[in-house]
């Protein structure tokens, strides 16, 4: 069985790299480039894990995270926050909103994969 992963980021090159990486690990992958698209994809695609960028047009990662956690149908979805802003207040905010992990850009691809696998258990 392969887990389903939703990639949410507005940087095309980052999306390309993450998509390639996840597919290579054998996950099913879907992509969204802004917050609203991310919520739609989450409902339709029903991922096991979401890689969620914070700085995005239209809806920030925080808002998406909050909306996902508010939806009981998606309560089991694991969320990993990705952000280029490394301030501690943002880490704390993300975790408080229900994110399962927090990864700072630029990240190590190996660490990311390990993190995803451990979350998906």
């Amino acid at each position: 069985m392969s887990h389903r992963i939703l990639i949410v980021d507005d940087e095309p090159n980052i999306v390309i790299s993450l998509e390639y990486l996840m597919k290579k690990e054998g996950f099913q992958v879907a992509v969204a480039t802004d917050g609203e698209a991310a919520l739609q994809q989450a409902s339709s695609f029903v991922p096991d894990l979401i890689l969620l960028d914070i700085m995005m047009p239209r809806k920030s990662g925080f808002e998406v995270c909050q909306a996902l956690r508010a939806d009981p149908a998606l309560a089991a979805v694991k969320i990993i926050m990705l952000t280029a802003k490394g301030r501690e207040t943002e880490v704390a905010k993300g975790l408080a909103l229900g994110a399962d992990a927090y990864i700072t850009k630029p990240f190590s691809t190996r660490d990311l994969v390990v993190q995803i696998k451990s979350l998906l258990g």
Binding site: E11, N13, I14, S17, M55, P106, T109
Partner: peptide, 25 residues
Amino acid sequence: ISTVTHELRTPLTSIRAFSEMLQED
């Protein structure tokens, strides 16, 4: 400074990710 950091990290993220993938595979 926070914004600058963000703007600098974004291209770096891509560069690192692709470099690592090329290196590992």
